[in-house]
Simulated assay, not measured.
Amino acid sequence: MANGNAKETTLHQKILSDIESRIVSGEWQPGFRLPFEVDLAEQYQCSRMTVNKVMTQLAKSGLIERHRKAGSFVSQPRAQSAVLEIHDIETEVKSLGLPYAYALVQRSERQASAEDRRLMDINEATRLVKLLCVHYAGKKPFCVEERRINASAVPEVSDADFATTPPGQWLLRQVPWSTAEHRIQAVGASAEVARSLGVTKGSACLVVERRTWSNLRPITWVRFTYPGDRHTLVARFTPNT
């Protein structure tokens, strides 16, 4: 049974990779109708359920659109209001002319909880490494980092030493990301975050949440919380033409 599951997982990743590469390379243009699930299952000699899971992931990532009876089509590209880079916090701090420091506060490894599954779109069998870190600019806390890393997708994380190396830097070197999503909001500091940032509970903070994927596999979810009076978020973009 275990060998069967491993085979299905390997086929799942192969189909994902094959279809994604055809779309990203432009071989399958926007509007192109993908082969039907039954035909893909026959082509890859796998169950239709495996193909259906692949198509569901592709639809969630925005690469395809599924239409009942008509089939699945490569999505039309959607304009974004702004594009934010995945930046290195150490570089950001040093650009201010301040010395950078980092501290790992907590680390644990466990099975994905209901909240983890909601945040990262993963299943209950997924193992995660959960981290709490504080980044400093000079003597003042710059931001609090709360991060979950998919250990099932990045097994090396179980042995990674984050005592001196920030997880963001480690991930950028370890795993090439293909897709990222940002969510930005203003919040009041919780008691725990307030202690870490050296501010009063309820103080205005800027929160940036990010999810990243590599070849459609969820890699990490991270929340950066910055003191509202010490951080400005800037996005550079160009007008639609």
Rank of each mutant, 00 (worst) to 15 (best):
A6D: 04
K14F: 14
K14D: 15
L16R: 09
E20N: 03
Q29W: 05
P30H: 12
F32M: 02
R33N: 05
L34S: 01
L34D: 00
F36V: 07
D39R: 09
R48Q: 14
V51I: 15
T56E: 15
I64K: 01
R66I: 15
S72V: 13
V74L: 02
Q76V: 06
R78V: 03
V83M: 12
T91V: 12
L96Y: 05
G97F: 12
Y100L: 11
Q106C: 04
Q106W: 04
R107M: 06
R110T: 02
Q111K: 15
A112M: 10
S113D: 11
E124A: 14
A125W: 10
A125S: 14
A125Q: 15
H135G: 03
A137S: 04
A137H: 02
G138L: 07
K139V: 04
K139M: 04
E145A: 09
R147S: 14
R147L: 14
R148A: 15
S158P: 00
D159W: 11
A160L: 02
A163H: 04
T165I: 13
Q169M: 00
Q169E: 00
W170V: 04
V175W: 03
S178D: 00
T179K: 12
E181N: 14
E181A: 12
A186Y: 03
A189H: 01
L197Q: 03
G202F: 00
E209I: 06
R211V: 06
T212Q: 07
S214C: 14
L216M: 09
P218F: 13
V222W: 05
V222Q: 06
R223P: 00
Y226E: 04
G228I: 01
R230L: 04
R230P: 00
F237E: 14
T238H: 11
N240H: 05
